[in-house]
């Protein structure tokens, strides 16, 4: 199932609505990198609220997506990591190294706006 990418101003919002296969994640990465260019996005919010599992592959791919977006000139915030998922990532010893996170979509958009203003 492809991940829909919505545009709001110069921010792209992608809500992952179901458990993604590895292929879906990689397609999403490519789509997002394209779309950042076509709409000249400066920020990206990836909402993972609906994900009940983030294994090591998915976490590292998400991190890669955020880095790819950054190289395309858009800052990514990952929002909606569920409490159980957060705890599991800690147990696995995985981090999102420098990719900002926020509680939910609203907080994520606010964080992007704040960073934009500070630039």
């Amino acid at each position: 199932m492809p991940v829909p990418i919505l545009k709001q101003g110069d921010t792209l919002i992608a809500s992952i609505v179901a458990a993604l296969s590895d292929d879906d994640l990689l397609t999403f990465r490519d789509d997002l990198a394209q779309k950042i260019g076509s709409v000249r996005a400066r920020g990206v919010v990836i909402d993972v609220t609906a994900l009940d599992v983030l294994d090591s592959f998915a976490t590292r791919t998400l991190r890669g997506i955020a880095y790819t977006a950054k190289l395309r000139g858009a800052e990514t915030v990952i929002v909606g990591i569920q409490p159980e998922v957060a705890y599991t990532l800690v147990q696995l010893g995985l981090t999102l190294d420098g990719v900002p996170t926020a509680l939910d979509l609203e907080e994520g958009l606010a964080l992007l706006a704040k960073r934009r203003a500070a630039r």
């Binding site: 009940d52 599992v53 983030l54 294994d55 090591s56 592959f57 569920q82 409490p83 159980e84 998922v85 705890y87 599991t88 147990q91 696995l92």
Partner: peptide
């Protein structure tokens, strides 16, 4: 529910 998530994630790792 935390343990359910840990178990599901461990299964994901070995299945992959």
């Amino acid at each position: 529910s935390t343990d359910q998530t840990l178990i599901a994630t461990a299964i994901s790792e070995v299945a992959r």
